[in-house]
Structures are given as C-alpha cells and as structure tokens.
Simulated scan of single mutants.
Amino acid sequence: MTIALPDRPLRGVDAPPDLTDAQFAAITQRIHRETGIVIGAAKRSMLISRLAHRLRHLGLTDFAAYIRVLDSVEGEEERHALISAITTNVTRFFREPHHFDALSEMALALVARARAGGRVRIWSAGCSTGQEPYSIAATLVDRAPEITQLDLRILATDIDAKVIETARRGIYDQASLGQDVPVSLRRHLQETPDGRLAVSSDLRSLIRFEPLNLLGIWPFTGQFDIVFCRNVVIYFDAETRHSLWRRFSSRILPQGQLFLGHSERMDPRLDPYFEPCGITRYRRTDRNLAEDGPSFPVGET
C-alpha cells in the first residue's frame, strides 16, 4: 500500500534549492530503476519539497551534492531514506471491505486444508504500516480461532523499512481505526497506558514482517494461496506492472488468488494465467508459466 508523492507538498519547506533538468532526470531515473515508481514532470515540485528535507538533514546546499551522496559507496543509508522520502503510506484497517468478505468466504477451505496437515501461505505485498495483514489475520481468526496452532502464516512486506518497524510494533492511534471497528478486530486490540491500541499477540504470531523491494530478489521459496498487492503498482509504468504480475503468477498456486487495488486491472496479456473472479480479484489458472519461458531475469527468485 505504499504509493508515491501526493498532490500537495509537505509544509515547512522554505526556499528549497533549484533542481536542474539533468538532476531531476538523474534522481527520477534512479527511483524508477530501484522501485518501479514513475515520477513525471507534474510531480517535480513535490519531489523538490520532499528531498529538501533530506538536504537539510545531511547539511547539503544543493542537489548536485545530494546526487553524489546517493552514488557513493557510503550512501546506502541515504538511498533507503530516499525511498522513504518519496513514498507515502495510505492505508487503514479493512480497506476495501469486499476483499475481506471474499477472504472470509475462502477461509474455511484454507483452514480445512491446514487442519488436514497442509501448508497455507498468504502474502501482503506492500503492507505499509501493517493494517492490511492484521485485517487478514483478524478475518481468518474470526472464522477459525485455532488457526494460530496450524501451519497457516502471513508474509507482510514493504519497500520502506521504517513502516515495517511500525507494523511489527502493531500499536495504533485510536483515531486511525475510524468509527466502525469490526468485532473481528476489536477483540484483538488492547489499550496501552498512553491510550493507543495494541494488536494482540495472537494476530502478530501469524504474521512475519520483512522489508522487501518487489523489483529485487525475493529471498524465499514456495508458493502462496493468496497474494494481496493492492494500490502498490498505480505509479508503475505498464511494463513494470506486467513484469511484476507475471512474476506473481509463478508464486501463486493454481486456483490461488491475487487481490489488486480498486483502480488496478490485470494486464490482458496475462489472461492465460489470471481469470477474474470478483472485484479486482483474479484466480490463478492451471497454465504452466514455464510453457511460455521465464517470467523474470535468472536469479530473481
């Protein structure tokens, strides 16, 4: 659920330095290469606003110096900070509730397989600050409380390591839950001494949070029954979206499902591998991807 630059700059930025066309191209090309996010000319002032904070933090006076830091051997920490600076995380519990209604309907079959000794895996790809995977876990536990004792686990990843730390803590302001907190979630929240809400250990035990760039190497094996990748690729170009979804197809079990965001639609070129089965939900067909050649560069598994 990590998305790029919003349509208004951050407040409190006074007279940011000039960004030349060449510098804008160098930075946006790096962002696209490393994250898949496309930042066009219309977002130029937003980029300047965001990165002006980084220049001040580093004590730099211009973008030329900032680019030298990004290109340096010692610049790895700042390259991570760049990703955090140009992304914003828009999420909430049970966002797009029809998806969780569908998951609830699927839950009994998943749990039955786990009860029989099977392995069930779900991936929240682009999990932001954790509301999505906690909503997934709450939906499943609501249908079958014993799943914490079964081989059913949720992998939750995001490119931004800072939001992963927030997700791991699982502590949220009460205002972030909105007015109508589902019973399936409320029973798993405990008030902290400072008036915030902490997610129960039962839900946290089902989820493994890890930082991960979806365009990089996926350091795990195996396939998933369900992948949530919602509102992640809306700033990707068409070919990057195609490559990622094709890559997902190799990691989703036949008859497994891919959940996309409300404004995202599957690339028609992938119709042999995904068939629509609900609102922005796609079922993996039985077509073997190997029949059509590799889905991503060798080594990216």
Rank of each mutant, 00 (worst) to 15 (best):
L140N: 01
A125Q: 07
R204Y: 08
H98Y: 05
A125C: 09
F224T: 00
F24R: 09
R281E: 08
T301M: 13
R284I: 01
S250P: 06
T2Q: 14
W123D: 00
R143Q: 10
I154H: 06
L60H: 05
L206D: 06
L155C: 04
L5P: 01
S263L: 07
C229R: 02
P17S: 11
K162T: 11
L203I: 00
R54A: 01
I86K: 09
V90L: 15
T148P: 15
R115N: 05
A138K: 00
G216W: 07
S250N: 08
A198P: 12
G12F: 08
I122E: 03
Q23V: 10
S200Q: 04
T87W: 13
L215N: 01
S176C: 07
D202Y: 05
I3D: 14
R54K: 05
A65P: 10
Y134S: 01
D173L: 10
L19C: 12
L185E: 02
L60P: 01
A81S: 08
P17A: 12
R8Y: 13
P6N: 10
R44T: 10
E300I: 14
I159M: 12
R50D: 08
Q29C: 13
G293C: 01
A138M: 00
S49F: 07
L82C: 06
I122W: 07
R121M: 08
P17V: 12
S201G: 11
A42T: 13
P9D: 09
R265P: 10
S72E: 08
A161S: 13
T129D: 15
E76F: 05
R265E: 15
I31W: 09
L260G: 04
E34N: 05
I37L: 15
L270G: 05
A81L: 06
L185G: 02
M46R: 10
D173V: 05
L253W: 09
E105V: 08
M106E: 08
A15T: 14
D151F: 06
T35F: 11
P272Y: 00
V183F: 10
A4Q: 11
E105Y: 07
D14I: 10
D225G: 01
R113V: 09
S205P: 11
G216H: 06
E191K: 08
S205I: 02
D271G: 13
L260Y: 10
L155F: 06
F220I: 06
L206Q: 02
I159K: 08
G170N: 01
G118M: 07
G195L: 01
E146C: 02
R265F: 15
D142R: 03
D62E: 13
H32G: 14
A161G: 09
R269A: 10
E78F: 03
L185N: 01
R208G: 14
D202C: 09
T88N: 15
R208F: 14
G118P: 08
D7Q: 13
G126I: 07
S49L: 08
F209C: 02
P145Q: 00
E76T: 15
R11K: 12
E165L: 11
I27A: 04
S84P: 01
R33P: 09
